[in-house]
């Protein structure tokens, strides 16, 4: 009872999504700090052995719901399994990926249980605080211990808000892929596997939405995990301009990212967008080419080690957080970087 739960997202060939493993890593830390257990929920089809993917992250209990109709994901059956399990288990915290699935499922669960849900958290911490609460007609100062601090950017990244929901359980939060770190706790960690009968939790009537056709591609790049990112913005000027960035990235064994403006202009694929509504990256080196640095973009890359900005606008906001600011045109500077690197790399 009152444990920390993580909803596990299960993809093609029953591979657990990275974001779920990242959340287990965070969930383990929160559970340890609270002195409770870490549990997770696996819902899908042919899940025998699924626990081997999650246990090493320190999971004490793995709840399994296995039915051919539970993959691919549809909203109502997964909602019913989670909601009805939570009614029995009363978790104090529930974490989900801020993915298409997590953002489809989380709000339904919170709506059914009347619990608070904070989307797209960038930090999660345990802390105590005082808050004025209404009791009858008067306000009284109340102290709360061991609460989940749900920290997220808001208003297009211009503010950081700390959200709490002290009077409702579970405290629910979603976190984007790549925001938390994934770390195996112990390869031999032994937890318990609990196989539930899906029919006890999910009414047949819940299977009303049918997936007629599905097309999923393996990610074409590893932007999230790249050590070096070459990112382009509106200042790159064209699709051809991006070809140069791809060349530089190829030489440096880097990945190419982009700002929303460059994606909207159609110069580069949507899945390469970096920022609050795209991918969060924290590479060792971030080379920003022709990116002005809207706050939404900076929110997704400010943790980068070394930031190099190439821009002909000396007043571009990104220059303020850059370690190096090369004032110049992309088409002039990028070939020079390539040329020097080709001649001098070890």
């Amino acid at each position: 009872m009152n444990n920390v739960f993580v909803y596990i997202e299960i993809g093609e060939q029953n591979k657990v999504a990275d974001v779920s493993l990242e959340l287990l890593t965070k969930g383990r830390k929160l559970a340890t700090q609270l002195g409770v257990e870490l549990e997770c929920i696996c819902i899908g089809s042919k899940l025998d052995g699924i626990e081997t993917q999650v246990m090493p992250y320190g999971v004490d209990k793995v709840h399994v719901f296995d039915d051919a109709r539970l993959f691919p994901y549809t909203s109502l059956p997964h909602t019913a399994a989670v909601v009805n399990l939570f009614k029995e288990e009363n978790p104090q915290i529930c974490l989900m990926g801020a993915t298409v699935i997590g953002r489809d499922l989380g709000p339904r669960v919170s709506s059914a249980l009347h619990s608070g849900l904070t989307a797209d958290c960038t930090q999660l911490e345990i802390d105590g605080f005082d808050m004025k609460v209404k009791e009858g007609d008067t306000f009284v100062e109340k102290h709360y211990d061991n609460q989940l601090m749900q920290i997220r950017p808001a208003f297009g990244g211009s503010i950081i808000a700390t959200i709490v929901n002290p009077e409702h359980r579970p405290q629910m939060a979603t976190v984007r892929d790549g925001v938390m770190k994934k770390e195996i706790l112990d390869v031999n960690y032994k937890g318990q596997v609990i196989k539930h009968n899906p029919a006890d939790y999910i009414d047949d009537a819940a299977y009303v939405v049918k997936v007629l056709e599905r097309h999923v591609e393996e990610a074409k790049h590893n932007l999230k995990g790249a050590n070096i990112v070459v990112a382009g913005g509106y200042g790159v000027g064209s699709k051809e301009g991006f070809e140069q960035l791809f060349q530089l990235a190829h030489e440096l064994h880097a990945e190419v990212g982009a700002s929303r403006a460059a994606v909207d202009a159609g110069w580069v694929d949507h899945d390469r967008q970096i920022g609050q509504t795209g991918v969060t990256v924290r590479p060792k080196v971030y080379i920003a080419c022709g990116i002005s640095g809207a706050i939404q973009h900076i929110a997704g890359m400010k943790e980068s080690g070394i930031i190099i900005s190439i821009n002909n606008d000396p007043n571009a906001p990104i220059n303020q957080i850059a370690d190096y600011n090369i004032q110049g045109n992309i088409e002039e500077v990028v070939p020079k970087l390539i040329k020097y690197y080709k001649a001098n790399s070890k």
Partner: peptide
């Protein structure tokens, strides 16, 4: 259920 405990404005530190 959710309460905003604190709000901090982001300041771009040069």
């Amino acid at each position: 259920p959710t309460n905003v405990k604190t709000v901090k404005s982001i300041v771009f530190k040069a």
